[in-house]
């Protein structure tokens, strides 16, 4: 027998795909997708409660509730699933069996993370479909009613204004940003779990990071904008602002929901920011995990 071992590929997309697929399968078999039903109920419910409003108000409520719920659900899903994965593999010692195969640790992390990204992607897509479906249905109803009650002379304009306030393709960049935000949050959750010892700890810290991420913009403005803060505080605030992601940026989605046209440049800037932070968190997670005692 040839004593020299076969050539080992240092990076195998097949191994990563196997790990990602397995992660997705685990989450699917945990029946996490059932929460989509909850989402559908919320959106349909909010469309039923607003039948007495004007159609502009109806559509606006639907968009606010729909996008808000997609945002919260995708964040929570990413957070909880990620927080579960690593500590569970460690506790159950399934990690030993995996890493005893020729699998580099970064491939393991990457596979887990990609599995969660896929899961969030599928969830966001499904929720968006439900949301667009309910909105489209309401739109058709309102269009039919208006066609019956409006004199023919004004009809074309009335229908056009209804269409303009219903589902618009410019909602898609908003949904893309919601997805990116959930991915970013899942990644720092993974980073936390590489040094945490339990899922509960990971979830708590990750929620704190999420909250700090939302208020850090205000703190930054307050302390760094005014000149009277001590240098120490300024450095501290700057450090916090650098380490924690500025999640306030993603609030642009609220404006997209009310129909504000967001410049493409701003959209790409936020996307670039999100991708950069995600990559950096991944890198740090890998560094921490590669030195961790199992």
């Amino acid at each position: 027998m040839n004593p020299s071992s076969p050539v080992h590929s240092l990076f195998s997309t097949r191994r990563i795909a196997a790990l990602a697929h397995n992660t997705l399968l685990e989450l699917v078999r945990m029946r996490v997708f059932y929460f989509i039903l909850l989402f559908a109920l919320m959106v349909i419910g909010s469309s039923l409660f607003t039948v007495n409003f004007s159609f502009q108000e109806q559509f606006q409520v639907l968009k606010d509730v729909g996008l808000g719920a997609i945002s919260i659900f995708s964040w929570l899903l990413g957070l909880l699933c990620t927080a579960l994965l690593l500590p569970k593999d460690l506790e159950d010692r399934t990690l030993y069996t995996i890493l005893a195969k020729p699998v580099p640790r970064f491939e393991y992390l990457l596979g887990k993370l990609l599995g969660v990204f896929l899961l969030i992607g599928i969830a966001v897509a499904l929720m968006s479909l439900v949301f667009a479906g309910v909105l489209g249905l309401r739109e058709q109803q309102v269009l039919a009613e208006t066609a019956r009650s409006t004199p023919p002379a004004d009809l074309a304009q009335a229908l056009a204004s209804i269409r303009a306030s219903a589902f618009q393709w410019n909602l898609l960049p908003g949904i893309a940003l919601i997805y990116l935000k959930a991915v970013l949050c899942a990644t720092f959750t993974l980073l936390i779990s590489t040094f945490a010892s339990s899922s509960v700890f990971t979830v708590l810290v990750s929620v704190v990071v999420y909250l700090v991420g939302h208020v850090q913009g205000i703190a930054r403005e307050y302390w760094l904008g005014g000149g009277d803060a001590s240098p120490l505080i300024k450095v501290l605030v700057a450090l916090v602002a650098l380490i924690f992601p500025d999640l306030q940026l993603f609030n642009i989605v609220d404006e997209i929901a009310v129909g504000t046209v967001v410049p493409m440049l701003l959209f790409w800037k936020i996307t670039g920011f999100g991708v950069l932070y995600t990559l950096v968190y991944m890198l740090v997670a890998q560094v921490v995990f590669s030195t961790r005692e199992l």
């Binding site: 071992s5 080992h8 685990e26 159950d92 010692r93 399934t94 069996t97 005893a100 195969k101 020729p102």
Partner: peptide, 17 residues
């Protein structure tokens, strides 16, 4: 990592998915 190409491991109290 290559050293693990040639070895199979059965851990103590093995747990799998």
């Amino acid at each position: 990592v290559e050293s693990r190409e040639q070895v199979g491991f059965l851990p103590e109290n093995p747990y799998f998915y």
